[in-house]
Design a protein around this nucleic acid. Structure first.
Length: 493
RNA sequence: CGGGGUGUAGCGUAGCCCGGUUAUCGCGCCUGGUUUGGGACCAGGAGGUCGCAAGUUCGACUCUUGCCACCCCGACCA
């Protein structure tokens, strides 16, 4: 019996549990560079599944992909005042372009003669370089809307990092669109928020609240920031995606004007929106349990694993014949199947391994099944198993994949519901945060001052003002001033 | 960036306080064999800049200083 695969339980140590899963399910590991991670093949293939689903959704909504450089002239940043203020503290800067051999023979050193005339920033986001480019692309209303997305890596120099949730370098997509009117840009911003929510719920099986950020939490340079917020199993909120209405801020900063149908020149209206490898963190923390990772079928690199149980090589061959037929039949239905016939590991070991790697369905076929025409079918989400006829396997598996997907969403939704409360006084609010953290709906007077005070005293922030919020008269839990609606508070990642 | 902790083989660790042959054990890995319905067993074997760098010393895993990385807590953020 190996200790290697023993997980910390969520109860025992939530962060350790999370790190264990990331490492032991082979998703990612720390790299030689502080704050940066290596995404391992198994983890990356989940990200690829996310990418391809999202990419299709973007294309289906009229967007095209392009690529802009990773290095941005420093001067670009200062063109939009609040943007530079928001990102200045976390920028990596390229100052030189050459190394040379150290004259004292101590390896290579930066060549002081190779200083860049203008320093380059490694993109923390690409608004500036993109809007500088758009100036040349947009002349007329006929050039609009411009609907572009890019898949890229970016760097934000973070103080404290956690695999997937916050790393110095991360992968993401960023959409940058240009429109003739404010209304159109806002519609685009909202449309992409809906795409994100759709993806989170229907692919990741993660329920989210759609909302608007307070001015304090808004993206640097945006007029309005929309977001999807998810609730993790420890009661902390996770911002899973954002979509920004940028107004004419970047158009003005980079002088991007278009001639309208009437022949008038006006600045272009903009949106930008993004989701990142942080989604991996959301996925892990939404569904996984004390036995390891749980992946919804639609994002699982391997949906079905088949493990043979045999006695001797001869029997293995017979089983393999049956398995290969089943495998083919499943694959014909578009299901990804792995047949694990490694001989040096026993079935029990494999069972455990696929459990902590989160494979949704496991089929075991042994000598007894050979005679009876049966198989053992186990589902990861419930950790249950049953014996069924091989002849019913394909149909059963197809249905089960759908069922597991739905079950995970249902379970996560129930958790979110159970973790969502209403507080009507500050005392009650603080008690909830301590005793049963989660989303807390409470009245707020709408001022940044109150928001910051609450944050300072409780570490809870306003996650968003839900889009479907019902208006309700009330009093701010902190200041007692009148409020027209409840907002969502939580401690967050 | 502040407080706390950790760093010895792929993983988990003993040794360090009180310096002294060839650095301990378990798991994993390799070879061969027996096994295989929930984390197999036997035999043999390989694998180490003791996080890095200086210093003290006849001698450093052990003492001193500096640095690095990771974890936890804070400030900051997707």
């Amino acid at each position: 019996m190996s200790k290697e695969f023993d997980f910390k339980s969520r109860e025992e140590d939530y962060s350790k549990w999370y790190n264990n899963i990331v490492e032991k399910a082979d998703l990612a590991e720390h790299s030689a560079v502080k704050g940066c991670m290596v995404i391992k093949p198994y983890g990356y293939s989940i990200w690829e599944k996310m990418q391809s689903a999202l990419d299709k959704m973007f294309k289906d909504t009229g967007h095209v992909n392009a690529y802009f450089p990773m290095l941005i002239p420093k001067s670009f940043f200062s063109k939009e005042a609040s943007h530079v203020a928001g990102f200045a503290k976390e920028c990596a800067i390229v100052t030189h372009y050459r190394l040379k051999n150290d004259e004292e023979g101590k390896g290579v050193v930066v060549d002081p003669n190779a200083r860049l005339e203008e320093e380059l920033i490694i993109r923390p986001t690409s608004e500036t370089i993109i809007w500088n480019t758009y100036r040349g692309w947009i002349k007329s209303y006929r050039d609009l809307p411009l609907l572009i997305n890019q898949w890229a890596n970016i760097v934000r120099w973070e103080m404290r990092t956690r695999l997937f949730l916050r790393t110095t370098e991360f992968l993401w997509q960023e959409g940058h669109t240009a429109h003739a009117t404010s209304e159109e840009a806002i519609a685009e911003t909202e449309k992409m928020l809906n795409v994100y929510a759709d993806f989170a719920e229907n692919w990741m099986a993660v329920p989210v609240i759609k909302g608007i950020k307070t001015s304090n939490e808004r993206f640097a340079g945006a007029l309005e920031t929309y977001c999807i917020e998810a609730l993790m199993q420890d009661g902390k909120a996770l911002q899973a995606g954002t979509s920004h209405f940028l107004g004419q801020n970047f158009a003005k900063a980079f002088d991007v004007k278009f001639a309208s149908r009437e022949g008038k020149l006006d600045y272009v209206w903009a949106s930008s929106w993004g989701v990142s490898t942080r989604l991996m963190g959301a996925l892990i923390m939404s569904h996984s349990d004390d036995a390891g990772l749980v992946i919804p079928p639609k994002l699982a690199p391997v949906q079905v694993v088949i493990v043979p149980i045999y006695n001797g090589e001869e029997q293995l061959q017979k089983i393999s014949e049956v398995v290969n037929k089943i495998k083919k039949a499943l694959e014909d239905k578009g299901i990804s199947v792995k047949y694990d016939d490694r001989d040096h590991l026993r079935p029990g070991f494999k069972f455990a391994e696929y459990e902590f790697k989160g494979v949704p369905i496991r089929i075991a076929i042994g000598g007894r099944d050979l005679e009876k025409g049966t198989a053992e079918l186990a589902r990861r989400d419930m950790k249950t198993k049953e014996n069924i006829l091989q002849s019913e396997l394909v149909q059963k598996v197809e249905g089960l994949l759908v069922e597991i997907q739905q079950n995970l969403f249902q379970r996560a939704s129930d958790r979110m519901k159970a973790g969502t409360q209403q507080a009507d006084s500050y005392a009650e609010f603080k008690k909830m945060l301590d005793e049963k953290p989660g989303f807390i709906f409470a009245h707020w007077d709408g001022t940044t001052e109150t928001e910051l005070k609450i944050k300072e005293e409780t570490k809870a922030t306003i996650r968003c003002i839900p889009l479907d919020n019902k208006k309700e008269e009330g009093k701010c839990i902190y200041s007692g001033k009148p409020s027209v609606q409840r907002v969502v508070f939580a401690r967050a990642y």
